[in-house]
Computed example of a mutant assay.
Amino acid sequence: MARLAGAVIAMEVAALVVAYLAFGWLVLLVGAPLLVGTVLVLVAVRATEVARRKLQDLRPTRWDIDAPAPGGLMSGFFEIPRQGGSMQVTSGSARG
């Protein structure tokens, strides 16, 4: 993420320098705020990415059967209740 952000900032600074050399100082009236805006967006993305990564590390994997189920509106509605640690087998006919 840091390398990509650095590359974006470097390309934007290079474009701003080329535009300044070609068109003069008036380009800075548009280019400087755009550069600051890009930096602010990259900082915001970095902050949300750190929070998302921490949340993902705390969440159990979907294959972890001992992890508690996440709460929510329909949590547990479609779950089959667990029956101890092993499968229970009953003998006899179910047809009556």
Results as ranks from 00 to 15, higher is better:
M1W: 05
A5F: 04
A5H: 14
A7G: 12
V8C: 10
V8W: 07
I9T: 14
M11K: 00
E12R: 10
E12I: 02
V17M: 06
V18M: 07
V18W: 14
Y20F: 14
A22R: 14
F23A: 13
G24R: 02
G24Y: 07
L26V: 11
L28N: 04
L29Y: 10
L29Q: 01
L29H: 03
V30Q: 04
V30Y: 12
G31M: 08
G31L: 06
G31D: 09
G31H: 05
P33H: 11
P33C: 12
G37P: 09
T38W: 05
T38G: 11
V39E: 06
L42Y: 01
V43Y: 03
V43F: 03
V45G: 07
A47N: 11
E49W: 08
A51C: 00
A51S: 05
R52W: 03
R52Y: 10
R53G: 02
R53H: 04
K54Y: 00
Q56C: 02
D57T: 06
R59M: 11
T61F: 02
R62V: 05
W63D: 15
D64K: 03
D64G: 09
I65M: 13
G71F: 06
L73P: 15
L73R: 10
L73Q: 10
L73S: 01
S75K: 09
S75T: 13
G76W: 00
F77D: 05
F78I: 02
F78P: 00
E79F: 01
P81T: 05
R82F: 06
R82M: 08
G84R: 09
S86P: 01
M87P: 01
M87D: 11
Q88A: 15
V89E: 05
T90N: 13
S91D: 04
G92S: 08
S93P: 14
A94F: 13
